[in-house]
Design a protein around this nucleic acid. Sequence first.
DNA 1: GATGAAAAATCTGTGAC
DNA 2: GTCACAGATTTTTCATC
Lengths: 151, 151
Amino acid sequence: MLDDTDRRLLRQLLADPAAATGEIAERAGVTPATAWRRLERLAEQGIIRAQEAVIDWRALGYEVEVSLRFSLDKTEPRAFDDFIAAARGVPEVIAIETFLGRVDLRLNVIARDMRHYQEIYRSRILTLPHIADIEALMLISTIKDAEALPI
Amino acid sequence: MLDDTDRRLLRQLLADPAAATGEIAERAGVTPATAWRRLERLAEQGIIRAQEAVIDWRALGYEVEVSLRFSLDKTEPRAFDDFIAAARGVPEVIAIETFLGRVDLRLNVIARDMRHYQEIYRSRILTLPHIADIEALMLISTIKDAEALPI
DNA sequence: GATGAAAAATCTGTGAC
DNA sequence: GTCACAGATTTTTCATC
């Protein structure tokens, strides 16, 4: 599926996604044209999904990020779809994850400060449909760069 | 802090991060030079943290992703640092988050299948230092694009 | 202090080998 | 997989508001 060159290219791409293809090529030890063609193929195969712009909400004045766990009402078959559709409409919800098991869903919510968070929580979160139970955790930090990766 | 033009540029960038600056400029209704200067400034200010390459682990044969919650041993002051340092060394750990409260930490772990996951869990996770308690949730999907954003 | 137009430098993507 | 090249894009400069 992936040979060693692909793996080197992927590692370089993860290490410095904004780098020009030529840069990545050099670091991976191939010519730019080769790097370009291989990265193109990896994107076609869906292995490289997309480039994503990461915004630092803290720098924009959103000091609080909370991870909320939800259990939904199991008697309502449309609970999942309704809940997700509603959650997507809340601007302060920046991520939605679904799970197998007791906990059905997790939302990440950002707010300017704790006061603002309380406001969002009451007006936008508690009003989401089919909630059976909620648990909140305040997020302190996210460490994204593993030293080692499985590629 | 941000004026309306910055906000438009940010929205366009989030909507299509791979687009050329000229494209983003046009969609935001400014010239490429202006777009470039403003995006540069936003990056300097740390508001645009980085471009990130998103890898589809599933397409690479990692079918299982699990979110693990840890409580650590509160009698050991170095528990946090030790645990994080060790977790960063595990290739299958692709994200680390820290929290305020009863749950101290969350790791996202990927594996080829459930058998492989069991193997990693026993040999690489249970051997991490200072664990008091673990809870696992199997991740089904992640929805990243909120329809509305707070910018 | 920021903008737009245009030039210069750099990068992307393609065809031939 | 490499090399060379045309076209596109990024980044700088400079005059202007």
